[in-house]
Amino acid sequence: MAKNESTQPEIARPYANGVVWRRLSPLATVLVLILVWHWITDWQLVSRILIPPPAQVLQSLAKALADGTLAKHAGTTLGEMMLGLPLGVSIGLAIGYAIAKAPLLEYILSPIIVAFQSTPIVAYAPLLIIIFGTGPSSKVVTTAVIVFFPTLVNTIVGIRGVSPRLRDLMRSLNASRWQIFRKLELPSALPVILAGLKTSATLAVIGAVVGEFVGSGSGLGVLVISARSQYDTPLVYVTVLTMTAIALSLYSLVALVEWRVLVWQRRST
């Protein structure tokens, strides 16, 4: 039952074995996918109109990079995300915390929140465009709206999951409200909140692009429509893959933060 009390705590190294292979395996998946893609187009299994060969997509990428098209549109989308994501996340954190602490608020707010969440954003994005204008601000709003919910739910779950006995401990130490938040609630809820943030990070791209689809002057959503309307399928692929890359990078960034902050969880398993 009790561990041997004389052993020194050892630094856990979960990746010590086969670390190289594990790190490389996603890369291998991507390579295999590209190969399959190449063969499908090479053997004309599917019309090139629907799936252009990888080489053609690569050419299109080089061109879009060289003439600045990709940078311009990706920059717009990233800018909208970088405002919308923190906005939606901070509102989600604040309301989530309030609801977790005051269950009455949940009764009052949950119909509105559930209604917002269960309505597809694609359906009401045009309304947001009309209200907030056709500039970037409406896309900041669509992004904020879409990232709000996972943050909210995970904040509520995280704060409600704080051990009541640790709360007793903090109270018996005469800790202030701020100290209880900073030293107990926040670190205790952090793993769940960060998990929500990972979801939000991937949704942020969707939020911005949905807003751009409805009406915008630039952004990856616009580029995809304009490439599609010009039957430039390789450019469509380049744009979609760029969105994927942005979502993946953002996800990895949060995962990295998680890895740095939650040392104790790695050591605890």
């Binding site: 130490l173 005469n174 030293k183 670190p187 205790s188 104790w264």
Partner: peptide
Amino acid sequence: MFQDANLMPWRTVLDNIALPLEI
């Protein structure tokens, strides 16, 4: 003092023991 140790899992032993001083 509670029935189980009631330590904060995200704090080291050092920081768990020091909690009353920190507060």
